[in-house]
């Protein structure tokens, strides 16, 4: 007991000192883990998406995010990274929404209105991504979700095909597949089985 009390005394003192120090030593704001993980997932799933020509032959992938979007900082980590031999370039999503110049347009749930205009605006060859509720069911393509503290996603392949985007089937296996304004399809249930009990 005695030797341990002596050993612990310095750490207690240290802890107390540190608590005083921290009042005078602010730390830079951190990006939420959720934002980072969602951004990383978007980065990862890009390699499963094929764009129609001429986008597919372009040497850049233009990722558009509203500069006021809370996710903008997290997505800035993608800027300059490569997917296969294409470089990701982060662009500011214009207001009002014009998506013509984007390969991917992201908007977060905090900006629900943008999400709706994203769906309305998206033309050929623009991959729409949002974490807004029911985004995929309303016609968005990739819908990030948080469930049990884990990020997962729904995909609306129908919407993607309409835009001439190709989604690799191994990505669909990881997703919940939905159709526009419908309940989860039978496929979705079967796909869940794949990631079921066996590991």
């Amino acid at each position: 007991m005695a030797p341990f009390s002596r050993q612990c005394a310095p750490s207690l003192a240290l802890a107390a000192a540190l608590m005083l120090v921290q009042l005078a030593n602010p730390v830079a704001a951190e990006i939420k883990n959720e934002h980072k993980v969602k951004a990383a997932i978007v980065y990862k799933l890009l390699r499963y998406i094929s764009w129609p020509d001429p986008a597919s032959s372009s040497d850049t992938i233009r990722l558009c995010v509203d500069s006021n979007d809370p996710y903008y900082t997290a997505f800035s980590d993608l800027d300059g990274r490569h997917v296969r031999d294409q470089k990701i370039v982060l662009k500011v999503l214009p207001e009002p929404v014009v998506v013509d110049a984007c390969h991917i347009a992201f908007t977060s749930a905090e900006r629900d209105r943008t999400a709706n205009s994203l769906i309305a605006q998206a033309g050929k060859g623009v991959l729409t991504v949002s974490d807004s509720s029911q985004f995929a069911e309303h016609g968005g393509m990739i819908n990030l979700l948080v469930e049990n503290n884990r990020v997962r996603f729904k995909i609306n392949p129908q919407a993607a095909y309409k835009s001439d985007l190709r989604i690799n089937s191994s990505l669909l296996r990881l997703a919940e597949v939905v159709e526009t304004d419908s309940k989860p399809s039978k496929t979705a249930i079967n796909l869940h089985v794949d990631s079921g009990a066996f590991e």
Binding site: N33, V37, I41, N149, V151
Partner: peptide
């Protein structure tokens, strides 16, 4: 990380 691994991260 792989997509599967990212999807298993606990964001708390």
């Amino acid at each position: 990380l792989s997509l599967e691994e990212l999807m298993s991260i606990d964001i708390s």
